[in-house]
Design a protein around this nucleic acid. Structure first.
Lengths: 145, 145
DNA sequence: TTAATACCTAAACCTGACTTTAGGTCAAGG
DNA sequence: CCTTGACCTAAAGTCAGGTTTAGGTATTAA
């Protein structure tokens, strides 16, 4: 059993954020002893799932919905599974999108490096896209389609 | 040359968002003909960079700063390059983080599937972590460290 | 000629996710 | 005893990033 302060340190979250999650219904099973929250393994796993679902793009109220399904028991495993599948698709799309962003940054980095070398931009502009190194050309194409 | 409506369609952005970006100073070179914005290749590339920097985690005012560097000319290629490098690091961290999220979702998906098969949760809980398939065990470990 | 459509501005409004504030309880140490 | 620190609540405040509204101009199609 942990206090809110200990959990805040573990997850590197402000105490106020954890209270906010609790108030939003994201920690439905949490016990209290004379008003003070007692965090068990159950709550630690809940916080892990909250962070995961949040990063996958879900908003707080959708996470609350998920917690309601958790509370409801065996009947809702289908819905929970569907949610995880949906968020999996979202996360893979997000990763793909960030890989495109990475390609653009790679191209832009090269561009700046060349402009610094040349002392001007025109020389570099003249190299785009046919006189670019192969890897940069690929990055350029990935980010400009 | 394109109108704001055409550009909005190209980038799948609301017209109001593009006006908001312009007002924030993110399209410093944009020309107007009797008050109406004229989007050239220059602005299309600016919008591509805006989307890229936004997705990399930069806020609007930092993008505005970047556009100021663009305006300033050759002196600022160093700063721009440094920014691209910083955002590259941020994007790679974000991808790594999303890969962890993906692992958690994978584990949770398996968990729900098994719970549906078994008709109860206890059977599945008893399998964690030693009786899980290898790939799920790996996903579990990636998401629980 | 008038009606629809696309453009424009300034300013108010909205939303989500926190964060801060103000006021209070309780246990331990000096 | 009293002060420090960790906990608590309700409610107000904040911030980014838009979006909506209200009011106006200009061109085109019927």
């Amino acid at each position: 059993m942990y206090t809110i302060g200990q959990v805040a340190a573990m997850f590197d979250l402000p105490v106020s954020t954890i209270r906010y999650y609790d108030k939003a219904g994201l920690l439905p099973d949490i016990q209290r002893v004379s008003g003070i929250r007692q965090f068990s393994d159950n709550e630690l796993e809940a916080l892990r799932v909250i962070e995961c679902l949040k990063k996958s793009g879900l908003e707080i109220k959708a996470i609350k919905q998920f917690m309601d399904w958790n509370q409801a028991g065996n009947e809702t495993f289908g819905q929970r599974k569907t949610l995880f599948e949906k968020q999996m698709v979202a996360v893979e799309a997000e990763i793909a999108s960030l890989e495109k962003v990475r390609a653009m940054l790679r191209y832009k980095q090269w561009y700046c490096t060349e402009a610094i070398k040349a002392g001007n931009e025109e020389t570099v502009v003249a190299m785009v896209p046919d006189q670019m190194p192969t890897d940069i050309k690929q990055a350029y194409e990935r980010s400009h389609i």
